[in-house]
Amino acid sequence: MRVEVRLFGGLEKFVKDVRFGEGFPVDLPEGGRVAELLDRLGIPPSQVFSVLINGRHASLADVLREGDRVALFPPLGGG
């Protein structure tokens, strides 16, 4: 299956030739979890503070589905 990934706040530096906010496809085995996605991308889980799947909060243990929009963030705040 294929998911669409976006990286932000410096996490993009872990993946070659990817800019922040630019969606790119990643192929994963059926039933793959967020943790496996991080592993595939070489992003240490300790750097990831928030995971959004299709705009909703998710955890590293959540299972991904075909076509999911996945966004990964370091710690951030403001207002």
Partner: peptide
Amino acid sequence: HPVTGQGLPAYGTNVLMNIINEAG
């Protein structure tokens, strides 16, 4: 704290733009 110690000092308040956008 990750937000006040790392997040805010790195990119400032406008780092919110992308997560608020992703959250719809």
